[in-house]
Nucleic acid binder design. Structure first.
Lengths: 178, 178
DNA sequence: TTATTACGTCAGGCTTGTTGACTTTCCAAC
DNA sequence: GTTGGAAAGTCAACAAGCCTGACGTAATAA
């Protein structure tokens, strides 16, 4: 097992093309990686504080977010977006339902399905959680400017694999990028 | 408890200024939030596969990454960057040392300190893990272009809080942004 | 000498994830 | 109308990865 013996350092040409790749040093890439790590941690810090107060975790946040995003979505659909097992989600979902934040109604088309909705209380928590992240994002967007924001989104989307991108796009109201 | 009753929708003016904030709708912000969520998941997927093979987790990856980044750093310093407890890190570090990926030498200046280094084997795993992420990042960078990359980094940095930004900058070889 | 720091470790607890097995309900196809 | 399978819920057991609290040891600093 010997990895990357030839790619030890500096300018990784990386492709066959070699267009204008001068900026793609391993240093640059590594900084991008680290920026993701630190930014993501900062990004989840605010909601985590609120959630801890209420004895919830990030899993609850994610469930609440996507139920809010698409009211009436089924358990299977939610399972698909979150990428976890039924059992894992169920535990979280059960507490949310018991606590009166989520409502589970029998499916209209198919009575086997359960359609998930936020209650007024659940929607209130969603707003509270999201607002902290929006505030952070808003501040970052204002500081960086519209052009930077476009680049930010462009790179993030380019980082997603096919399947993830599909899920991401499925959520969009108005797809802009063909 | 009633949150954000007034901010329900659309164009959040958000500041007192109102410069050229037309692009900052709640929709835009929400998409940014979701892009972070999905991109981060895609971003960690490749290393996770390799780590699972070896019965390691993300915690091991993070430790390896930062030890590689700054060979000889002390346990306390590592604790600070990772933002976890001593006990939590110790379990991870112990297995890495037992498995011969990390070496812990007695501090030169201060004999209480332990300075951490990757062994040849540890460095090999680091390269293997990082290369998957670099490849993804490289592809995304190439697809999006240099300008987008600049924006990407700019927004991520603007998202970090003071303390996180300090840690992030402390790693940099050549700080560019004043 | 004493206080403090750096590190390691034992114990116990929580959340979130996993597998595997099983039941109930319901749709749909034969 | 029976039957096969999908959707959902549940029980049990387990592991990773975090946490707090308490304690011990070694070495530096006051």
């Amino acid at each position: 097992m010997r990895y990357g013996d030839a790619m030890q350092n500096k300018v990784s040409v990386s492709g066959a093309g070699g267009e204008s790749l001068l900026f793609l040093t391993d240093d640059q890439l590594r900084r991008g990686i680290e920026a993701m790590f630190f930014a993501y941690r900062a990004f989840t810090a605010d909601p985590d504080l609120i959630l801890a107060e209420l004895d919830y975790g990030r899993a609850h946040h994610r469930a609440i977010h996507f139920i809010n995003r698409e009211p009436g979505l089924t358990v299977t659909a939610l399972l698909d977006v979150l990428g976890v097992t039924k059992q894992s989600l169920n535990r979280v979902l059960r507490t949310l339902i018991e606590d009166g934040l989520v409502e589970s109604r029998i499916g209209r088309r198919d009575r086997r399905e359960r359609q998930l909705y936020l209650t007024e209380q659940g929607a209130a928590l969603e707003r509270r959680l999201t607002e902290t992240q929006r505030a952070r994002m808003r501040a970052a967007y204002r500081a960086a400017g519209p052009q930077a924001v476009a680049g930010f989104r462009q790179v993030l989307e380019a980082m997603m694999d096919r399947d993830t991108l599909r899920q991401y796009r499925a959520l969009k109201d108005l797809p802009e990028t063909p």
